[in-house]
Computed example of a mutant assay.
Amino acid sequence: METILQLKGLTKKFGSLTAVNNLSFDIQKGNVYGILGPNGSGKSTTLGIVLNVVNPTSGSFNWFDGTLNTHEALKKVGAIIESPNFYPSMSAEDNLKLVCKIKGIHTSRIDEVLETVNLLDRKKDHFKSYSLGMKQRLAIASALLNDPEILILDEPTNGLDPQGIHQIREIMKKIASEGMTILLASHLLDEVEKVCTHVVVIRKGVKLYSGPVDEMNATHGFFELKSESNSELKVFLENHPAIESYEEGETDIIKAILSKPYSAQLLNQESFDKDIVLTHLVQRKETLEEQFLKLTKEQ
């Protein structure tokens, strides 16, 4: 599989602050990658480095298996890392014509990209008449004008209402389904779970996880348990070969983490055989949010 972008030990320091700390990962063609982390975790700095607007302190990156220098490679990249910046009193179409002129590319794709972002019927309207969501969609259209091999988006749904968020996510899914590689920075777990195939989790500039989204979430799940005798239940869980660990919550519900697949029916029978009657038994799968919180908690 073709490697579009490779980061090797990338580090960026601003004085005593280390924004990006020895970051390494690869972006493979045809996937949707999410860089996931809290605000201030180094996501935007990382994107700034690979787009050549921020100089790294150490480490390196290369585009397209190193076959192109950064200047030439960026001609094959579409990116939005700042708020949309268009002329308010010009139409969407005229703004995109200007972008084409600045980038030295043909205007033939304007209608195509406007249709992709569902703005073709509003192409004659002034930019100032657009909602925030429409402005963001026009920015995506602008980034697609050069028919890039990868689209880079920094917090694309920031500040949008639920409808605007849904529209942007649907556009990302549509573009991805057509084979476009996407690199998306987000602090929203929901966004990454719904849109991305792969995720890089970072916190304070340090990589905590890199790989497929479904593998990050590929735990064996857990049981929620309660008994009239929780003390005996906890002894039972401590000695159970399928229970990795457990913790008791404020409502006396015990969360027992599984170390391997196990059925609720079998656990219920085993506890009953030891004279422990369960008054509550629910089997659950860990969400991406729970996985993320576990990762960041361990750091």
Rank of each mutant, 00 (worst) to 15 (best):
266 L>R: 14
47 L>F: 10
127 F>T: 02
280 H>R: 06
111 D>K: 14
125 D>F: 15
177 S>P: 05
181 T>Y: 02
24 S>G: 04
26 D>P: 02
214 D>I: 11
227 S>W: 09
137 R>H: 04
218 A>P: 06
80 I>Y: 04
235 V>M: 09
87 Y>D: 05
181 T>G: 10
179 G>V: 08
278 L>I: 09
158 N>M: 02
30 G>A: 08
296 T>G: 07
63 W>F: 03
216 M>E: 11
59 G>T: 04
87 Y>N: 04
171 I>C: 05
236 F>S: 07
94 D>S: 05
292 F>S: 00
114 L>S: 04
38 P>K: 01
198 H>T: 10
110 I>Q: 00
26 D>K: 15
48 G>W: 06
272 F>L: 15
174 K>E: 10
20 V>H: 07
183 L>H: 07
91 S>W: 09
68 L>C: 06
271 S>N: 10
34 G>R: 09
3 T>W: 05
196 C>R: 08
70 T>R: 13
266 L>W: 05
76 K>I: 03
283 Q>S: 14
138 L>V: 12
90 M>W: 15
65 D>H: 05
7 L>I: 07
275 D>I: 10
71 H>V: 15
247 E>I: 09
15 G>M: 12
3 T>K: 15
218 A>I: 11
42 G>W: 00
12 K>A: 01
53 V>K: 10
64 F>N: 05
232 E>A: 15
285 K>L: 04
205 G>H: 07
217 N>R: 12
8 K>G: 02
84 P>Q: 06
238 E>A: 13
167 Q>H: 12
73 A>W: 01
283 Q>M: 11
3 T>F: 10
286 E>K: 13
162 P>T: 07
131 S>V: 09
281 L>R: 02
17 L>Y: 14
166 H>W: 05
12 K>D: 03
211 G>M: 10
216 M>N: 04
19 A>F: 01
144 L>V: 02
127 F>M: 11
169 R>V: 04
93 E>L: 12
182 I>Y: 05
134 M>E: 03
165 I>V: 14
61 F>A: 03
9 G>L: 05
162 P>S: 00
170 E>V: 00
275 D>T: 15
4 I>C: 00
117 V>T: 02
22 N>K: 07
31 N>M: 11
28 Q>H: 14
50 V>K: 01
258 L>M: 09
160 L>K: 12
26 D>F: 08
269 Q>H: 08
195 V>T: 13
253 I>G: 11
36 L>F: 03
98 L>T: 15
7 L>A: 09
186 S>Q: 09
147 D>K: 14
246 Y>S: 11
83 S>R: 08
248 E>L: 12
253 I>R: 11
27 I>Y: 01
131 S>L: 13
250 E>R: 14
166 H>G: 00
260 K>V: 14
34 G>W: 03
69 N>S: 10
256 A>L: 00
203 R>T: 13
258 L>A: 03
266 L>M: 14
207 K>T: 06
96 L>N: 08
73 A>H: 03
206 V>W: 12
6 Q>V: 14
298 E>M: 02
145 L>G: 11
215 E>M: 13
166 H>E: 14
156 P>D: 08
289 E>K: 12
206 V>G: 08
47 L>C: 02
129 S>Y: 04
69 N>A: 10
